[in-house]
Design a protein around this nucleic acid. Structure first.
Length: 406
DNA sequence: CGAGATTCATGTGAAGTATACCTTTAGGCTTAA
DNA sequence: AAGCCTAAAGGTATACTTCACATGAATCTCGTA
């Protein structure tokens, strides 16, 4: 007892003495906005040009930005708007920005919650349920129209929201301005899905996507440059083995040029190095980081899933891996799900709902489903777990852990 | 043999219900004058 | 009498259920070559 306590003290003291290999870890985190954004100069300029009229208190055009994850959309949006906001504040202009990520559960994943969140951001308290959506709209408009404000709303991952709730929401948003006397609102929509506006109602498209900016993925060279400039800020001196950064860039380039992934990799590789008490980030640690990131990402999603979805997912897992079934259909999943519910002493939901939950898991990319018709043998969804093989065991354990099954 | 009917298992839409929460309102109690 | 609190009434969003119809190709049926 005493020994372990003592050694723990020693451990913490050593830890204090030990120098971190990071000078500034924040530089590698997603929330960090660097001074300059390499390879996105034109995009910044374009967006700046579109938004600049705000400084003359003119309503700028609505903008739509597309591009794969980690192609700098959010970053550019934040960079430009923050700079604009600074100048606006300096000149005491009544300009406001609200950034919302529509993927955030409980914050902005339905029309009601989106408007409620916007209203809250304007400093008006709105309950999270109980009010008619219309009423919340009115509160929002009132809060906004109290005095003359030029508001810019940035809706990140807006495709997710529309996919879930339909495009009526967008239509309502476009009409906000006609209900305002004093203030004006513009939107920046950010979407990972390049084809997003193709499927939109034309009216919505023409009013919401007056300007469009396309973000191409970074190539390996560009990623390398980004990594070099950030790693200079993040680490002390010469901590990175030769070849680590290029490999890091290559990894991320393979993943559709995802700069966020590249930076994550480097950061996690750094953390691993530090934990191992090593002084240099090696390629080995980078490879390890690659694995860890993938694992953590899926794990987080699975852990945050609603309980019923977790049980349904476990049902699919059981069929695919314990029972080694090749063809997994809704019916058998539902049977397995009911068994699990028995074990867990939960009242099972109906098959109708499970069908929706399965479709939901598909949307989240955790499983892959196809609706197939087997002629005489009916029509159903065929599905598979869509998690990288190396993570399956871990995720399976995580699932069983959170659900407390053996 | 082949066109059309049948069939199966579940997809999918619409409408209804339970739950948790909100605002409004009317009644009852307290308090200060 | 004015002010404040409380509980009931009346309303909503969301997650889920219930009901009922839609789907679509393998299989069956039956008329015809």
């Amino acid at each position: 007892m005493g020994d372990s306590k003592k050694s723990l003290t020693v451990f913490f003291e050593d830890y204090m003495k030990k120098e971190s290999i990071f000078v500034n870890k924040k530089v590698l985190q997603e929330s960090y906005t660097p001074e300059t954004i390499p390879h996105r100069e034109e995009h910044i300029e374009e967006l700046a040009n579109i938004l600049a009229p705000m400084l003359r208190m003119e309503k700028p055009s609505n903008v739509f930005m597309y591009g794969k994850t980690g192609s700098g959309k959010t970053l550019v949006a934040n960079y430009v708007t923050q700079n604009l906001l600074k100048i606006a504040e300096k000149n005491k202009l009544p300009v406001k920005m609200i950034y919302l990520n529509c993927k955030m559960k409980q914050t902005a994943d339905t029309e009601y919650r989106l408007i409620a969140e916007l209203t809250n951001q304007l400093g008006m308290k709105v309950p999270f349920t109980g009010l008619p959506t219309n009423e919340v709209y009115n509160t929002f408009l009132k809060a906004l129209d109290k005095e003359k404000i030029l508001l810019l709303i940035i809706l990140d991952e807006i495709d997710q929201l529309v996919e879930k709730t339909g495009d009526e929401l967008l239509y309502n948003l476009t009409r906000i301005n006609s209900n305002l006397k004093n203030s004006e609102v513009s939107f920046i929509g950010i979407s990972n899905n390049t084809l997003f506006t193709e499927n939109l109602d034309l009216r919505i498209k023409s009013s919401l996507a007056q300007e469009e900016i396309l973000f191409p993925p970074y190539n390996a060279m560009q990623l390398l440059k980004i990594l070099e400039s950030r790693s200079k800020l993040a680490f002390k001196g010469n901590m990175i083995d030769e070849g680590v950064l290029p490999k890091c860039a290559a990894y991320a380039a393979r993943e559709s040029g995802d700069a966020r992934k590249a930076l994550d990799l480097l950061r996690v590789a750094g953390e691993i190095t530090e934990r191992k008490n090593q002084v240099k980030i090696t390629i080995e640690n980078l490879d390890y980081a690659e694995e860890k990131i993938e694992r953590d990402k899926v794990q987080e999603i699975v852990e945050k899933l609603p309980k019923q979805s977790q049980v349904s997912l476990l049902a699919v897992f059981n069929l695919e891996f314990d029972k080694n079934m090749d063809n997994i259909y809704t019916g058998s999943v539902y049977e397995e799900y009911k068994k699990l519910c028995m074990n867990l002493k939960m009242r099972p939901l109906t098959q109708r709902r499970i069908s929706d939950i399965i479709a939901d898991l598909d949307m989240q990319g955790i499983i892959k489903t196809t609706v197939i018709s087997q002629g005489r043998y009916g029509r159903t969804r065929k599905m598979n777990v869509a998690i990288p093989p190396s993570d399956i065991e871990n995720i399976n354990n995580v699932l069983k852990g959170v659900l407390n099954v053996s």
